[in-house]
Each structure stands twice: as structure tokens, then as C-alpha cells.
Amino acid sequence: MTLRGLVRGLGCILRRDLRLAFRNRGDLMNPLVFFFLVASLFPLGVGPSPDVLRIIGGGVVWVSALLANMLALDSLFRSDYEDGALEQLMLSPLPLSLVAVTKVLAHWLVTGLPITLVAPVIAIMFGLPAEALPAIVATLLLGTPMLSLVGAIGAGLTVGLRKGGILLSLLTLPLYIPVLILGTGAIDAAANGFPWSAHLMWQGALLALGITFAPLAIGASLRVSVSG
């Protein structure tokens, strides 16, 4: 297969996934609303004290983003699995790992990216200092794709199961921990006026690692699920 054919084939997949997302507006909005909702539960849980909220703000943004991302992941391959489109994807001459990455990219564009863009609003509501806002956007920008990549492995493994949802969270949440620690660490550092570029570089390194290896694992997990 030529490079041109490859790019056009993957482009075709990306366009179709984005089109489907925009046709089902609910799927597009739900993770975002969920993100806001979870974040607004924390002040109700711990009380409205500005001092407490300022301390937990960075963590709340990240934990909410992580949960929203994970919940949205269940649908990443599910409808394609159920209606047979996944079989067509697997039997196309395009390499399965690249197909998987393209689908993850489409998914990130409609979940991770919007979450990243609205996260500063939550941060302001929690009273985080302005210095923390760039760190929030930057860490989410590097971190949410990693969440999607790692989560897609779990989504691939559980797509053939009738009750995939809760199992998916059991499988993926432990794997999210490094991303969470680096993300909140950077926000903490930025909020206290310390440099946070090291955190960001570590996140970048993790993302590079994820982009290299996760596609193989996603492809393998899809193959297993479709076969079973």
C-alpha cells in the first residue's frame, strides 16, 4: 500500500468518526457535562472554604477529566463492534494499529480536547491562581491523549463483553496514575510559583512512549475481542 493510500484511508476513518460524533450531539456533550458535574460535587462534599478548594483544585480538575475520559472510552469501539464496522476495519489493508490510533485521535478530538479547553473555567471556580492556568491547559493537552491511548487498550479488551463499563474502569484507572501524578504535580508547582517544565517533559516522554507502544496493544486487544 502506498503512503498516499494509507493517509487517505486513515483520513476516511477520521472524517467518518468525527461526522458520527457530530451527528450524535449527546455523545459529544455528555463527557463535558459530566466533567463539570463531577468537579462541582467536590465543593458540595468538602465545603465551600476557599482555602481548601484552592488546595484541591488542581487535583479535582485532573480527577474529573480522568473520569470523564474513562466513561467516554466505553463507546470508543462499542458501536463499531456491535454493528460489524470493526470487522471491516480489521479486514482492511490498513495496519490495524494505525487504524486504532486514528480512532483514538478522533475520540480525543471530541472528548479530551474540549475538556482541556474548558478546564480553566473549573480552575477559576476553585480559586486557583492565574499562574496555574497555563499549567492546567498544558498538562491536560499532553495528558489526556495519553489517557485515551491507555484507556483504548482497556476499551479494546472489554468491547466484546456485555457489561464492559465497570470492568473497563477497574482495568484502566490504575494505569492512569502516573499521568495523574505528573499533571497535578505540575499544577501544584505552578500555583506555588515553582517551575513546572520538568513535569511537562516527563508527561511528553510518557506520551511518546504511549504513542509508540499503545497502538500495538490496542490492535492486539481488538483482535482478541473480535475473535472471541
Binding site: 491507555v150 487498550i153 482497556g154 479488551l157 466484546g160 482495568l171 490504575p174 494505569l175 496514575i177 502516573p178 501524578i181 505528573l182 504535580g185 510518557l206 507502544f213 496493544a217 492486539a220 486487544s221 482478541v224 475481542s225 475473535s227 472471541g228
Partner: peptide, 28 residues
């Protein structure tokens, strides 16, 4: 058979992640 393959993939992914998790938790 499916369970075996799925678990193998998960175990391998976990093994790659284990040092990263360990390191990040210590750092945290």
C-alpha cells in the same frame, strides 16, 4: 482462549506500567 489472550495483553501492559507507576508514586 479469549480470556487467556486478553489477560496476557493486560498483564504485559501492566508490566510495562509497573515501573512507571512505582517511580511516579515515589516521586509523588
Amino acid at each position: 482462549e479469549t480470556a487467556a489472550r486478553a489477560c496476557a495483553i493486560l498483564a504485559m501492559v501492566g508490566l510495562v506500567n509497573l515501573p512507571i507507576i512505582k517511580f511516579s508514586v515515589e516521586w509523588w
